[in-house]
Every structure is written in C-alpha cells, then in structure tokens.
Computed example of a mutant assay.
Amino acid sequence: MIVTSGWARTALSHRICTGIQRRRLSKLIAELAEPWTAREESRLRERRGHDRQRAAGAGPDHELVFTDRVIATLVVLRFQLPHAALALFYGVDRSTITRAVHEVRPLLAARGFAIPAAPDLRLRTLADVFAYAACHGVELRIDGTEVRVRRPRANRPGRRAFVSGKMKQNTKKATVISDEKGRTLWTGALRPGRMHDQTALKTEGICDLFERFPQVKAKVDAGYRGLAKQFPDQIEAPPLKPKKDASPKEVADWQAARTQQSSERIPVEHANAEHKQWRPLQRWIGRREYYDETHLAIAGLVSDRTAMR
C-alpha cells in the first residue's frame, strides 16, 4: 500500500483524530508557526556556530512539513498512538515522528489557557488566574486529579514518591481550576502521587495569592479543608459531618448543605472529565519526564474549546 503525506494529512486532520475542528486547527498551526521557526533557526544557528550563509529556504526540505508535524503531535496527544504507526501513514521513519512531537509538544504546553470573550488573552500562571478572577468577579472551583504512570525502576531514589495513598498506584497529580461553568482556567502543580493535593497547591504559592486578592472566592472539596480553615471568608469546603449523637434534623441539614456545596463545585469535576477524554490522561504509558508537558498541552487545547461556551 502506498500512502502519500497529502492523504495522511487529509485523513488525520479530522476532528476525530486531532480533537479539534479543522478551522481551529488552521488557526493553531498559524499560531505555532512563528515560535517553531524561531526555535528551529536558533537550533541551527547553535549547531553551525555562525549565521546562515544561504538564503532562507535553501537546502533540503523537511521530510515532514510543519503542518504535518502539528497534526502528528495532536494525534499522539489524542490517542497515545505509537510513533511507528504514524510514521507508516506519512511514509517516514519513526524517529521523524518522535522528533516532531518533541518539537511541537513544548509549544502547545507553553500556550497557556484560553478565557471567554478574550481570544488574544491567555492565562499561564496561577497569579494570572487570580488577577482574572478578581477583575471579572469569577468564583473559582479547585480540584486535584491524578493519572497512573510507570513505576520507577528498583533501587532508584524517590521510588516511593509516586505511590498514591488513594489509588494505591504509581501516579502523578495535577490541580485543575475552573469557573462556575466548568471552563478550564488553569492546570498545574504537577507533583508525584504521594504528595497531598493541598500540599501541592500550597507549594505554588496559593496562600499568598489569596492574601493579595481578598475578593477572590473558591469552592473546594474536603481535601482542601485546611485551606478553607485558613481563609474562611474566601474558600468554601463541604460542611463537617455531625457527631454520632447528632439529632436527625442536624443530620438532614448537614446532608442538604453538603449536597448543595457539591452541586456548586461539580463543574471542576466536569473539567477534569473533559481532560481525560484524551487517552494520555487516562493512563500515561510514556516516560514520566514528558508527562508534565503532555498534561499542559492537552489542558490548553481543551480550554480552547471550553472558552467558547
């Protein structure tokens, strides 16, 4: 069977394969073209040790043009497809696909997160999220998520750091922040699975941000109860369970309050579910050092879609 790159590009650029619509795909390619070109020129300049002596565009062409590099990377992010399988579609060596993924994935991870009604503005840090929430009166929803990863080899330092106390598996955790409609505003605080969700978020400096932005409010689950105690006027956690000798009315009131808080906090769970529609965030089978980039790249792509709600 003879497969041409044009046929592969037409088939793989479908929304089912890339996870995004073709009209948005063209905008994404245009957005990434300039930083990729700059990075490529910098790499070649460093390898040569001097400025280029031939005109731009001279020399051999790439086996895989930039458009195909972006499409191949999106397919890998969508389905965690083996690079050798994509190489067969494009008629290139497996290493060519691997190189393309390693070039494009960092660009996707660095894009940040889209917000509604501001296509040119993206949130990249936790401080950006708090500034945006303070300016627009957005109440945040915060939750942690974890994904299974490969177990480190025996006798390596920090091997137990990835063992999650909840899942009893080797995982990596991330914190997701959304608004009241479940639109992803930020994903970060990526830490080994043994670290508690609240501890991971505190290491990102969230306590200082709550002090700097006293008007920002958030809803969290029981795992962040310590933060809720520290900032009772800004963070709302589920109510404490009544004692065993509590009256039926107290139990009923607690159940109603817990249900109400849960229904208001549930949009961030929906945001987590949208991220996990992408295969790598269901179970990561690649190298752990590439997981952070992959998670941020996928979350940024999901935010592009959710920002249009």
Rank of each mutant, 00 (worst) to 15 (best):
A114F: 05
P82W: 13
R124D: 03
A200Y: 06
L209S: 09
T98P: 00
A133C: 12
Q169N: 06
F79N: 15
V65F: 10
K181N: 12
R23M: 00
G165N: 15
S303H: 04
T175Q: 14
L108K: 06
R124Y: 06
T10F: 13
R160N: 15
T199I: 14
A33F: 04
A56W: 05
P119F: 13
H14T: 02
F210T: 04
E31H: 00
R151D: 09
R54G: 04
G91N: 12
H102Q: 03
R287V: 05
R43C: 03
D128L: 01
G182Q: 07
K241P: 05
V138F: 10
L185E: 10
T67L: 09
R279Y: 03
G300P: 07
A55S: 12
R141N: 11
A33R: 05
G59Y: 12
R78W: 14
P248G: 09
W186N: 07
V176R: 06
R99C: 09
S13K: 08
R124N: 11
R122Q: 08
G19Y: 13
R124H: 12
I206Q: 06
F231N: 01
L121N: 07
R258L: 11
G188Q: 10
R39D: 01
A87K: 15
T306F: 02
A228W: 08
A307N: 03
L301T: 01
L185M: 06
Q215G: 07
K173E: 11
W36K: 04
N155V: 10
R39W: 07
W278H: 03
P214Q: 04
D292I: 02
S164D: 14
R47I: 13
T184L: 15
R305N: 01
V92P: 05
R288D: 05
I16N: 15
E34G: 06
A222W: 02
Q260S: 10
H102F: 11
T98A: 11
A117D: 13
K243P: 05
R122T: 12
A237R: 07
T18G: 14
E40Y: 06
M1D: 14
S42G: 13
H62P: 04
A72M: 08
E264R: 01
Q282G: 05
R48S: 03
T171G: 11
Q198P: 09
V163I: 15
E264Q: 07
D304C: 03
Y132K: 05
V138I: 14
